[in-house]
Design a protein around this nucleic acid. Structure first.
Lengths: 192, 192, 192, 192
DNA sequence: AGCTAAACGAGACGGTACGTCGGGTCTTGGC
DNA sequence: GCCAAGACCCGACGTACCGTCTCGTTTAGCT
């Protein structure tokens, strides 16, 4: 049994949560570049040492916050829905300035650290990507979508388009999700 | 005449270039997060004060380096080519690890500062986007592409797909540009 | 009976000794300033908490180590001998660099904390001082020493001279004890 | 000329003085052990970095404060006076609790760092020692003092006696200087 | 040629955050 | 109730950069 007997004072789950939530809060308000471990600790009411005990860098805290579901972005949550449903959920929520800022912060975290990048992929874009690809593959199989569509690549394009607009700070108009689906898949929302 | 008569010692163009080039170099080697003004100045053989005299923040230096063409990414350069040509140029060059790193650094800069974001858009993705949209619109007008394609949105999707793969650190296989064009536009490279 | 019945696990004498001996060791090797409770505990193979349970500060540990005889300096031990004998024993042993370092460490401890100071006085310099004063008083009474000598003050001067040379890091030459006795008491070693 | 041309912003003499004076103040109030660079900087109204730029350790600051005359102890100042005059000046001033505390702090600094030790010797005890030795040698030569007195050793004994009483926290009674001179030199104050 | 004015290098300054060390306190489980 | 283990908050350490501020020096255009 490789399970080590726990010794000493157990780790405070409350401190862990407070740290992750403070990180989310600060990511919202100041972005990734101005996010500091000092600031996280003080906002969480936790000592700096405790933060350093459990995380090696600010990107690692962001990664865990994402993996833990403390930071949630819509899209993945709508994984069970239709293609246009997912896209509209993404577009709508990312349209709000605060969520757009959070996405940019997460992109910066991903750019900074491969581990954070992987965490983000695993928890946020990955599931959405998979859901989209599955729906598209299904549509292709049913003959409802063009046969020359590669579902994986199409999912890249759908997610990428939204990401591109957020990073370049272009608002996505209300019906953007529908337009995107129509353009990429050659499908009106209702048909897919 | 709002043009002020230049007095005193003129600004050193050499210092300006050295600063921008050192910035490009460091963006390559350490990324945006670990880029420091101190480091730029010392790598450029320029005093810190001179950097601060001309730029307000590191993101501003990055922005000017981009606007000035000191930092160049392929894609925009291939603006005159065919759709698949542009995509393959982007995909190929971004496939190389060093360029991918540079793209991630620029994405972080864009996430950090709206001004840098705008500069990047104006000089890097914007022209590519416009070229793609023009070519696509042309194809649609000629009847070579599906009529339900919105050229602007399609260009978002094409660029976004590549960006998405770079940010999530997924290598794009050799023929990815072709696949992408086929999937989004329903066109084989040769026909567009 | 004010003697409380001891309950629970008795205090570990081994931990106590190990702590005091580790303290002596570290006082030797790093001095008082760089002496840490953390270091003592780990060198003694004892938990930090156990140290804190029994001592309030590092100076208290030093004090107890002295009182307990774990730290011994010559001089007091030679209390039964002649004046010159005591002085030469002090001079000789303090002449060795390691003992001189220890004396400086103890002086720093004494400077830091009145309680440590008192412990040192009680166990180390006090007995030596008393022995010297007694011998001197005896010599004065016997007419072997000048009558205008105040034995207490003379003892201050003898001990102080050695201490002064150690603190200012001046080596005491071999015959320094004799010179000192001759100068202060007007006596050649043999006559006292 | 090995004189380097001064470049850049000149060092602030005010910051230097403020640092040294804050050090003296804190040495008085908290002693050497609880003296911190953080505390010095904040008491001096100077940034921590500025302190670190000029001094490598707290003992170095103490040393410079002594060498610079920011910390002054009587004795050396009375170097021109008679033997009993010097001793009484030392005794009287060291008798005051605050000065005694300062002496203990300086002793701890000397114990901590050879460089500080040397500075203290050069500026504080050294001159007093030399003055005493000179006066004593003079007395011996004039026949006013016993011929078997070694002036250097006698000076050790006189200074050492005072130092010993301060370190062991024994108050020196008013006439202690006279007693000391009489005991060590066999001389009443008036005769020397 | 001398004067004026701005850019330049050097480098000190007050700061903020870094990542680490140690100090004391506390909370577990085992003895 | 002692003890090892180890987490906790706190404060200081010494370092790296930040952005600002003098300095003396350099390099132009204008008298």
């Amino acid at each position: 049994m490789p399970e080590p007997i726990p010794r000493g004072r157990p780790r405070s789950e409350q401190s862990r949560r407070a740290t992750l939530e403070a990180t989310r809060e600060l990511l919202h308000s100041v972005g990734y570049d101005r996010l500091t471990i000092e600031g996280i600790a003080s906002a969480a009411g936790v000592s700096r040492q405790t933060v350093y005990r459990w995380w090696r860098a600010k990107s690692a805290i962001v990664a865990e916050a994402v993996l833990d579901g403390v930071i949630i972005l819509p899209g993945a949550a709508a994984a069970g829905g239709s293609i246009a449903g997912i896209l509209n959920a993404m577009g709508a929520s990312l349209g709000s300035p605060e969520n757009a800022g959070l996405v940019r912060a997460l992109a910066a975290a991903a750019a900074d650290d491969p581990a954070a990048s992987e965490a983000l992929y695993e928890r946020m874009t990955g599931p959405t990507h998979a859901a989209l690809a599955r729906s598209i593959a299904d549509g292709v199989a049913r003959g409802a979508l063009r046969p020359d569509i590669d579902p994986e690549v199409a999912a890249d394009a759908l997610i990428g388009a939204v990401l591109y607009r957020v990073l370049t700070r272009q608002d996505s108009p209300p019906g953007y999700g529908d337009d995107l689906a129509a353009t990429v898949l050659g499908a009106t929302p209702g048909t897919a």
